[in-house]
Simulated assay, not measured.
Amino acid sequence: MGIQLSKGQRIDLTKTNPGLTKAIIGLGWDVNHFDSGANFDLDASAFLADQNGKVINDLDFVFYNNLEDPSGSVSHTGDNRTGAGDGDDEQILVEFSKVPSHIHKIGITVTIHDADLRNQNFGQVSNAFVRVVNEETNEELVRYDLGEDFSIETAIVVCELYRHNGDWKFNAIGSGFSGGLAALCRNYGLEV
């Protein structure tokens, strides 16, 4: 089992794991039992941002309708529309050596699809986590459990991977937004 982090903690990824070239960013969650009349569809996304924290090319936003950035460094394994079962519900793959030099930060987020229309929010979600796994060895390096701190939020910046002195680090963010995917896009400088 990897190192367990709390909100706000940062840890080095590539310096202390020199063989780490490809990482699986696994995200998982459970939906609390209740009847809202609609299924929950949570979606993971990655925002590839510059040194100012802004995405400068729409194609650097990786999600279920754009499964890979132009460099091939970040890819989404596909949309899981139910979140049923144990383990990772969705995964984003990162190949550190391919990340373009102008990308300084990769924001990993989760949103609830059509949350306002379905009257859903992260207060109805439990056991949410993110983990970083070395793709070659399948070893879990880092895990961050988000806890139950959310109520009305419909989007979360779960964590960020960022460059620091040539190495990649992990920052446990856990910051919630109302306004779903559109709010996250604006946060990272994309027009909706």
Score class of each variant (00 low, 15 high):
residue 30 D to H: 12
residue 31 V to P: 07
residue 31 V to E: 09
residue 33 H to K: 12
residue 34 F to Q: 15
residue 35 D to N: 10
residue 38 A to Y: 14
residue 38 A to L: 09
residue 39 N to W: 01
residue 39 N to D: 12
residue 40 F to R: 06
residue 44 A to G: 03
residue 47 F to L: 13
residue 48 L to H: 02
residue 51 Q to R: 15
residue 54 K to M: 05
residue 54 K to I: 08
residue 54 K to F: 10
residue 58 D to G: 03
residue 58 D to H: 07
residue 62 V to Y: 07
residue 64 Y to S: 06
residue 64 Y to D: 03
residue 66 N to P: 01
residue 67 L to M: 11
residue 68 E to S: 14
residue 71 S to E: 08
residue 72 G to N: 03
residue 78 G to R: 02
residue 79 D to Y: 01
residue 79 D to M: 00
residue 80 N to T: 00
residue 85 G to F: 07
residue 85 G to E: 06
residue 87 G to Q: 10
residue 89 D to M: 11
residue 96 F to E: 01
residue 97 S to E: 12
residue 97 S to M: 07
residue 98 K to E: 05
residue 99 V to P: 06
residue 99 V to G: 02
residue 101 S to M: 08
residue 102 H to T: 08
residue 103 I to G: 03
residue 107 G to W: 01
residue 111 T to L: 05
residue 112 I to V: 04
residue 113 H to Q: 03
residue 114 D to V: 04
residue 117 L to V: 12
residue 118 R to L: 05
residue 121 N to D: 14
residue 123 G to N: 09
residue 126 S to D: 08
residue 128 A to C: 09
residue 129 F to Y: 15
residue 130 V to C: 09
residue 130 V to P: 04
residue 133 V to S: 00
residue 134 N to P: 06
residue 136 E to T: 01
residue 136 E to C: 05
residue 136 E to I: 06
residue 137 T to H: 08
residue 137 T to I: 04
residue 137 T to W: 05
residue 138 N to G: 02
residue 139 E to L: 05
residue 140 E to I: 08
residue 141 L to W: 00
residue 141 L to T: 03
residue 141 L to Q: 00
residue 146 L to M: 14
residue 146 L to G: 08
residue 147 G to Q: 00
residue 149 D to M: 09
residue 149 D to A: 13
residue 152 I to H: 12
residue 152 I to T: 15
